[in-house]
């Protein structure tokens, strides 16, 4: 079964096409064109290079974030429309889970950390398990300072991975905890890992509902506009 993976929830966007035998084509960009301009040409490139057409796809997988709102939305909207038009199942996976999956061979506790901007990070803790990883905490959003307190209180050594780990490394190290920070090559969720993780779910028919699938925002939407204050100032 050929699955198309779309991951655009961080500043690094990627698409990949693969089956249970492995990824057959992928494309990635971490700067330049906006996701909206990158996505469909990138999918077209992957299909063409692999000698495939949209009709060969048996499923669509998408990175749900948490991440950058606009990127997540374009990725999820594109994946939903493709799945709907093709009448194929859709599977959504958390981008933090994809980042942790990249370092699944480590025996240490894994903490995936993605930059949420405005001095906040998205994070979750994992441990490796046979054939993959297991998430131990909920996806959360916190300041790096608060997360560093949580890490320092852990007795075991923690492997921190993701662009948030690199960005706030100094804060986590200052807290005096024993940490290792994953390299740049594992800093972002990747569509290849997405495809690899989505395929077993497709085979188990553990699909997501096309109608209910939403990005993982984790943050309540923008502040309500304070009309009361505006009205008061006029009087």
């Amino acid at each position: 079964m050929l699955v198309l993976g779309i991951e655009t929830s961080t500043p690094q966007a990627s698409v990949a096409i693969g089956s249970e035998q492995g990824v057959v084509a992928s494309a990635m960009v971490s700067r330049g064109a906006s996701y909206n301009e990158f996505l469909l040409p990138a999918i077209r490139f992957c299909l063409d290079e692999a000698g495939l057409g949209y009709r060969n796809l048996g499923g669509v997988a998408v990175g749900l974030g948490p991440g950058l709102y606009s990127g997540m939305r374009v990725g999820v909207a594109t994946a939903k429309a493709l799945a709907q038009a093709l009448s194929v199942p859709i599977v959504g996976l958390a981008s933090l889970d994809l980042v942790a999956y990249e370092v699944r061979y480590s025996a240490k506790t894994i903490c995936a950390v993605l930059d949420a901007r405005r001095n906040k990070v998205f994070h979750a803790f994992y441990r490796s398990s046979p054939g993959g990883i297991q998430r131990m905490t909920r996806h959360a959003i916190e300041s790096p300072e608060r997360l560093s307190v949580g890490i320092a209180s852990r007795p075991e050594e923690v492997l921190m991975v993701g662009n948030g780990a690199l960005l706030y490394r100094h804060i986590f190290e200052e807290a005096g905890s024993v940490i290792e920070v994953g390299s740049m090559s594992h800093a972002f969720p990747d569509a290849r890992a997405l495809v690899e993780l989505a395929i077993p779910r497709m085979f188990r028919e553990d699909f997501d509902s096309l109608f209910d699938l939403q990005p993982l925002y984790l943050r309540r939407s923008a502040k309500p506009i304070e009309w009361e204050r505006i009205r008061g100032s006029r009087a």
């Binding site: 709907q84 009448s87 859709i90 999956y101 398990s129 993959g132 990883i133 993780l197 699909f207 096309l210």
Partner: peptide, 18 residues
């Protein structure tokens, strides 16, 4: 495998492409 507690329900199937 990722242990995901938020497993979804099956997708509604639509007619096959013509």
């Amino acid at each position: 495998m990722i242990d995901d507690p938020s497993a979804g329900s099956p997708v509604a199937t639509l007619p096959s492409p013509l």
